[in-house]
Design a protein around this nucleic acid. Structure first.
Lengths: 145, 145
DNA sequence: GATAAAGTATGATAAATATCATATTTCGGA
DNA sequence: TCCGAAATATGATATTTATCATACTTTATC
């Protein structure tokens, strides 16, 4: 469903959402340690996201990555769009390009409603909203210590 | 969700379900043409499925692949299990190994019900059942001619 | 039984994805 | 104003996945 890259990206961004702001930034190294995502790989992902203004960054000492309120108000899907593009999420389960409601594949009707609901969630829900549970301790990004 | 390989495999098997039996077999070459799946790649997939008795085959002239009633009564999931293994379908959207209802990732509650429903469908529904729509013309594996 | 038509087994190549490395740019602080 | 700490840009390597090729085995038919 999601590529490995966007799993990593989303994990890191949710971590940023819960743990940073304009005055509290995190550098790649620390993010890598906190999330368990390989540092250099994570760095590339964050660069892409930063270039597309999904997340914010400042260079130099005391710099790092962080999320502004604007960033937090972006739908989760916008991040996935940058990393995976839009096609991957919307394509047929069997990979049949012409599959649609009028000419469905054998799995279409069994999958489409659930997939639609998931996509809608990703498009409606913002990064900030999704990170709320994380902040108040009712969801988690890492294993228990 | 499904790997490319199991998409191909499922497509081919559904085609077999709708178009073969003990007396009407299909050889790889024709399957490849009908489904648009690369011949040599498809051959490998069918060999795996045949070895695990998900589909049936006879060698030699007049031979080919086909489905028996026993094959048709297998749940769709059994095929995916052979090709992708069981882990891929059941793992967390964010790839967090320890994610579960008690300690959910931020997406868990938004995804889990839909995923559960899809998995249940794959485990309950048989290959024969899923191919029924194909036979009566209400679902399709290929583009319109 | 010889022949040819099929699947079977195995391995090689190609493409995509994940991962690592390194040089460059920007910027805060002594 | 210079040094070092950070992101940024770019490219190299490794791993996985997809694809192709080829030699081998089985079996129906003549």
């Amino acid at each position: 469903m999601l590529s490995n890259s966007s799993k990593y990206a989303l994990t890191a961004v949710l971590f940023l959402a819960a743990n940073t702001d304009e005055h509290q930034k995190k550098m790649v190294k620390d993010l890598s340690i906190s999330t368990g995502i390989p540092k250099a790989y994570l760095a590339k992902l964050l660069q892409q996201l930063s270039k597309h203004q999904i997340i914010s960054a400042t260079k130099g000492p005391k710099g790092g990555y962080y999320l502004t309120d604007d960033n937090r108000n972006l739908p989760v899907f916008s991040l996935i769009e940058v990393i995976d593009g839009t096609h991957r999420m919307e394509t047929c389960v069997l990979g049949i390009e012409e599959c649609n409601a009028e000419r469905p594949c054998p799995l279409h009707d069994h999958v489409y409603p659930a997939r639609r609901a998931f996509l809608d969630t990703l498009k409606k829900m913002t990064i900030g909203e999704l990170s709320r549970d994380l902040k108040n301790g009712s969801s988690f990004l890492t294993a228990q210590q």
